[in-house]
């Protein structure tokens, strides 16, 4: 520090050096933390894989070689009996309709319950503002229950068939859609509601006439997405005895070789239905939310 007349000029390079070293220090620290997180994550992944592998009936590396066996057996048998494929498709078509019906009704019923629940749990719209947290917790629990839990219990009480699956999926759907609906409804304009209440409309009239028209496109879009998910859920629940395509699939599979043509027909129907409704719903969803506040 020889230049006494300009202390700042001398201090500046020093400050910059400090800043730089401080920045580098921070960057190093950040990189260290990032690296540590990554290491922990990789360790978790690898050890998790080893645990899962050791607790599995068949090992990963042995099984990997056999992955293609079952599809190959199904495809080759289905190919040999390809003449029967159209007949099989026709035979299992009613089961597909049942699976789709389960998905459609449960989406419809779930969306209606979710609609009411979402209004009840949105601040500003709630019928009983003090009970908003209660309805939120109810929706959380409804969302948390896997469909299979309700379906299995109901199958015990009501016997097999589409109704247990319908109730189970509708229950979960109501909770899941209720949450999404409520997020949309939170952003709804309250002026129509105020206007309606000024002319003496009651709560349900305010909701139906004041809020629903604003949020309908988004609600419909979410419901369509849910319908896609519910088709898959309904097929899976069929597998545990709730009717529809999944049920037929389990039967066809338990018969083993010789019935693989039936299994193949069911695979094709399920695949086609899922892809078709994915396409339809994504097209309509795009149209519904175009320019809207998605």
């Amino acid at each position: 520090m020889t230049d006494i007349s300009h202390p700042a000029a001398a201090a500046a390079p020093q400050r910059i050096a400090d800043l730089q070293s401080g920045y580098m220090e921070l960057a190093r620290k950040k990189r260290l933390y990032g690296g540590l997180t990554l290491v922990v994550f990789v360790l978790l992944l690898v050890s998790g894989f080893m645990v899962a592998d050791s607790r599995n009936a068949g090992g990963f590396w042995d099984g990997l070689a056999n992955v293609g066996d079952y599809p190959a057996a199904v495809i080759s048998e289905a190919w040999e009996k390809r003449a029967e494929l159209p007949a099989n498709l026709v035979k299992f078509f009613p089961a597909l309709v049942e699976t789709l019906n389960i998905a459609a009704v449960s989406t419809l019923v779930g969306a209606m319950i979710g609609l009411v629940l979402s209004f009840l749990s949105t601040r500003g719209l709630a019928r009983w503002p003090r009970l908003v947290p209660l309805f939120r917790r109810i929706m959380d629990i409804m969302r948390a229950v896997p469909e299979i839990v309700i379906a299995l219990v109901l199958i015990f009480m009501l016997g097999g068939g589409p109704v247990p699956a319908m109730i189970a999926i509708a229950f979960h759907t109501a909770g899941a859609l209720g949450k999404l609906f409520s997020e949309v409804a939170e952003n709804a304009d309250l002026k129509p509601v105020d206007g309606l209440s000024s002319v003496g409309a009651n709560w349900s009239q305010r909701m139906i006439l004041g809020v629903v028209p604003q949020v309908a496109p988004n609600f419909l879009s979410y419901s369509l997405l849910r319908f896609e998910i519910n088709i898959r859920a309904s097929a899976i629940l069929g597998f545990v005895g709730a009717g529809g395509l999944g049920y037929e699939l389990r039967n066809a599979m338990s018969w083993g070789p010789g019935q693989f043509d039936a299994a193949a027909a069911i695979f094709i129907l399920l695949f086609a239905a899922i892809v078709l409704f994915d396409q339809i719903s994504s097209r309509y969803r795009n149209r519904l939310t175009e320019g809207g506040h998605a």
Binding site: R55, N56, A57, F60, G63, N66, V67, D69
Partner: peptide, 9 residues
């Protein structure tokens, strides 16, 4: 079918 029952499957 390939890996048997278990968490890995």
């Amino acid at each position: 079918r390939a890996f048997g029952p278990g968490p890995l499957t």
